[in-house]
């Protein structure tokens, strides 16, 4: 047994991108591995659940948990890791805000399961099999985790100490978090470990945004031949940079695409989508219904635009289903 601080990584409803971030630390990963003892990381190392269960409570210094919570197993693991860890980090947009899986909150189990297993044209399933909690196979009972109707963020399930934002977090952000952890420089509990300012602060195109911006129309990225040096909003493309926390160094913008808000809001904002739409309404639209409708015609999917990563963390959390459900 080493004296190095014990660290764990776990993934819930996620894509694996956050794991990639750890890998993207490249040679710095060796420093990390040298400084800590990774005691649980299902994707990379062969630890089993029961080994985790036998660890003393609080023996893990920090767990980095990515992915949203949408199955009973994920909920159990989150609770287990919370018990075993001194500090729990919500790692990446999914555990922080709900992430892309959070968009499932527009539906429920009853709609998702048939769509995925029966109606999807690319899924061959001639018997129409749909996963069940418990099934009998050759006389044995086989059980699967249950799927919740509503996707939740990590802090809606357990107490979270810190958040490392991003979809995925950049290697720099992760390193900074690890550095703060290992050197005892963590800020107040509950802090999101990225600057508490909007992305425009670090955007290379900031100067080119005019002071008086008033768009007659908002456009989607494919509708504009995007100039590589000018502020995207100034070009009429809906960039959520002004509403999004900084820290990624404007990676998407540097890739000539608008920010879609994966770092979430600043600490002063309760609902990312609500604020983002308020800001967009301030730069575009005219003075009457017709002008306003025209200005925002090119936003086909409001939830996907304003709550792409943050639906479960929003004030309403999910789409309201029909009465009676």
């Amino acid at each position: 047994m080493s004296d190095k601080p014990k660290v764990a990584f776990y993934w819930c409803a996620s894509c694996g991108g956050c794991e990639e971030t750890v890998v993207d630390l490249e040679e710095k990963l060796l420093d990390v591995v040298a400084a800590v003892d990774i005691v649980y990381w299902p994707v990379a190392l062969d630890f089993k659940r029961h080994e985790l269960e036998t660890m003393p409570d609080g023996s893990i210094v920090a767990t980095f948990l990515n992915g949203a919570i949408r199955t009973t197993e994920q909920e159990e693991m989150a609770q287990l890791l919370r018990k075993k860890s001194q500090l729990l980090f919500a790692f990446g947009s999914c555990s922080h805000l709900g992430g892309i899986p959070g968009l499932a909150n527009l539906w429920d189990r009853e709609r998702i399961l048939p769509t995925v297993y029966r109606e999807s044209p690319s899924t061959p399933n001639p018997e129409g099999t749909v996963p069940r909690r418990v099934s009998k196979v050759n006389g044995d009972a086989l059980s699967l985790p249950g799927l919740f109707d509503t996707v939740r963020t990590l802090d809606q399930v357990v107490d979270v100490d810190y958040y490392v934002p991003g979809c995925p977090p950049t290697p720099k952000i992760l390193l900074a978090a690890l550095d703060a952890l290992l050197n005892g420089k963590l800020p107040e509990k509950g802090t999101v470990l990225a600057p508490d300012q909007a992305l425009c602060e670090e955007c290379p195109r900031k100067e080119s945004r005019p002071e008086q911006l008033s768009l007659a129309e908002v456009k989607r990225p494919h509708q504009v031949l995007i100039d590589e040096t000018t502020c995207l909003l100034a070009q009429g493309v809906l960039c959520l940079g002004p509403a999004t926390r900084a820290g990624c160094e404007a990676l998407c913008v540097k890739g000539n695409m608008p920010c879609t808000g994966c770092f979430g809001p600043t600490s002063r904002v309760k609902d990312f989508g609500g604020k983002a739409l308020s800001a967009m309404a301030s730069v575009a639209g005219g003075k009457d219904e017709a002008e306003i409708a025209r200005a925002f015609e090119n936003i086909p999917d409001s939830v996907g635009t304003f709550y792409r990563y943050s639906l479960p963390s929003s004030l309403l959390r999910r789409k309201r289903l029909e009465a009676g459900r």
């Binding site: 300012q197 425009c200 602060e201 911006l213 008033s214 301030s282």
Partner: peptide, 28 residues
Amino acid sequence: ILEEVCSGCKTCIPLCPYQAISFVPDKS
């Protein structure tokens, strides 16, 4: 404006009919 955390995104600048809001280039 909460100066410390303002990112200088300029969203607010054109909104004031009394021209009470201005952008300070030195501080951005």
